[in-house]
Amino acid sequence: MTKEKYLNRNTYLLSLFIYNLARVLPHAILTVILLNKGMSISDIAVIQSFFMLAAIIFEFPSGFLTDIWSEKFMYQLSLILLGISYFITMVSNKFPILCISWFIYGMSSASMSGSLDSYFIRRAKSDEEIKHINVLINHSTLYSGLIGGGIGSFIYKEINIKIYIISLVLIFFSLILITFIFHPQKNIEKPSNNFENFHNIINDLKQITKQHRLIISIALYGVFEIITQLFFQFWQINFLKQHFTKAYFGLLYILFQVIAILGNSLFSKFDFSKKLPFLVVNIFIFYFSSLLIKNKILFLFLIILFLLPFNLYNNQLVVNIQKESSNKIVASVISLSETISSIVSVIILWIIGILNNHLNFLLIEKIMILIFTLLSLMLIKFYSSNERKN
């Protein structure tokens, strides 16, 4: 690795660490912040829906623009949009303005997806290098998430809404790092003429329909949202049913991050590309079993066991999408997969909301887990039966 490439990689990882630390700092107490601003639970639900709406609208266009313009530019744009969103949240107590703030936050998230990640994936020489890049990125975001989420609630008790000032300073520092120290190498495959580049990317995107393994990988990533939304949107309900008090939720959040870090370490050391069925079956066994258990300690143990294959499976799906994608359109493909995942997430939450009016929530969880397992195993079979096309 050349000195310039090494400097670029480490600058990005440091900038990403600082960005994510700034982003998650208020996350553990977001609901508290909005309640203190006079918002009701219904208001908060609507405000947060604007984030998802923006992500769905801008996710794919942002990836497309990344492929046409510059990964660095989209990363900088994401930081600026996040700074605007957090500044608005800090100074405003009005419901419509907060909805706009969350919409801008969603735009920032969409712009970040596949931005500078794509820069390094394009230049990877092998599938192993793609995997190594993802491991480094995961380490950066997971450790920053652990630190930011862990200390955010404690800082808020002391400085209240001024927690956003710390986030804004960190965002600015991340922007400075990437603007003045990160110097991307030119992509010799990319035409200098934007119109010609646009035309080439459209043609490359049309070829996705012929890349069966890529289509199946994206479909698997979408189906994975069933289990992702089921757990992360409703884990607190299940823990409350097991008689865990709310006082433990902060510690549980830290525990989830630690398990994700452990999963990422295992992912870096072992090859899971041929073990997708094994991971899906373990996700099913441990999550489904946890719903049948009455003992809170055994329940927690099963959740920990569930989260390990959950994180490993998620990491492998991301790598599969990246390695099956053409280098020229990797940002567009990443954003397309994220868009599909966001749409599936919204649909799943709507379905759960509707079914909950007629069925017991525990039964809904069991049905959703079964649907995820059956669909995933079926798609994995199709994935394995299609030879990879280089």
Rank of each mutant, 00 (worst) to 15 (best):
M1T: 14
M1S: 15
K5S: 12
L13N: 06
Y19D: 09
L35W: 00
I44R: 01
F73P: 00
L79N: 12
L81C: 14
S85A: 15
S92P: 08
F95C: 01
F95T: 05
I97E: 06
I104E: 02
M107W: 02
D117C: 05
A124K: 04
V135A: 12
N138L: 01
L142R: 10
L142N: 14
L146S: 02
G148V: 09
G148C: 03
F154T: 09
L168T: 10
S174V: 04
L175V: 01
F180T: 08
I188C: 01
K190G: 03
S192E: 14
N193T: 05
E196M: 13
K206Y: 15
I208Y: 04
K210E: 15
I218V: 15
I226E: 03
T228P: 00
Q233G: 07
F239Y: 15
K241M: 03
F249I: 14
G250L: 09
F256A: 07
G263A: 10
S265R: 14
F270N: 12
D271K: 15
P277E: 13
I285N: 05
L291M: 10
K296W: 08
I297G: 01
F299G: 01
F310M: 06
L317T: 08
V318K: 14
N320D: 14
N320G: 05
I321G: 07
Q322V: 09
S326E: 13
I329K: 09
V330N: 08
S337V: 03
S342N: 13
V346N: 02
G353M: 14
I354C: 01
N360D: 15
I367R: 11
I369S: 13
T373P: 03
Y383S: 11
